[in-house]
Design a protein around this nucleic acid. Structure first.
Lengths: 145, 145
DNA sequence: CGGGATCCCGATAGATACTG
DNA sequence: CAGTATCTATCGGGATCCCG
């Protein structure tokens, strides 16, 4: 048998680790709230029920595909309900469930944290970005992204 | 001038919205904690300082590139410190700052939420995935992903 | 109005190889 | 040991067309 390379061993580890992460509730939730649109949808619905196109307008930059996809996944997780009214033009309303409302509150906590500590982060960034500029080194330039 | 299509108007809106989101502290933080490796690194360092390769081993599936990238961004945001000890083989230690420790606590809150409500989410998913299966419809099959 | 199906492109994660 | 540089494969997300 061949000696495994570092990359091979890491790949093996990655597979196991990935499996572990998928079964980890924390990570699953993190995946959820980290979705670009999820937080926006939840925030929009936090003020009350909304129709599909209202959401599309309120969130502005979202494509119908992503909006639907986001709503479906949230519905699947029991975070919101989808109610269809079969009128002449169909009407679909979305509304947060108790659980969804609960998530909205968690997001509020995150938001509060962000607003509280954002100044510190900004200062840290400025320090980091200018550090070394006065010491004569200019290798930092490339790091600006 | 040509009449703008819906897609064109949405694209315009998306650009503005993106700009807004980038300036929004909440979203910036959300981007941070949603990063796959950030939460893992922060969690690993929450128990104490660690060396580069220790982190690489503890997190298992990470490539050196991503580890470095993650550590750099966290350092830039003032969430951890990087201290180099120029011994024979170089030694680099990473340690959470007060702010980083604070973030770790926020992540703990998220984790608690996840563990508390995960059962509800799981139940909702099972209900959603089996719904319609007994009503004779089998279009749900394709949704299994 | 509220979507589903399909094609396609750009960003980005990760593998590989090299350096101080 | 602690990274950096380069290349490639993947995949999320948008555009587009169409249906109920």
């Amino acid at each position: 048998m061949a000696t495994k390379t570092a990359a091979q061993r890491r790949e093996q580890a990655r597979i196991e680790y990935d499996a572990f992460l998928k079964s980890c509730p924390t990570n699953q939730l993190l995946d959820r709230i980290s979705d670009k649109w999820v937080s926006l949808v939840v925030a929009a619905l936090a003020t009350g029920p909304m129709r599909y196109s209202d959401l599309g307008r309120k969130i502005a930059g979202v494509s119908p595909k992503m909006l639907t996809q986001t709503l479906r996944s949230l519905e699947r997780d029991g975070l919101l309900t989808r109610s269809v009214t079969p009128s002449v033009p169909v009407r679909v309303d979305y509304e947060l469930t108790t659980l969804g409302d609960n998530l909205a509150r968690l997001l509020t906590a995150v938001k509060d944290w962000a607003e509280t500590h954002f100044d510190e982060v900004r200062e840290a960034r400025e320090r980091y970005d200018t550090e070394g500029a006065d010491t004569g080194a200019d290798e930092v330039r490339a790091r600006q992204k």
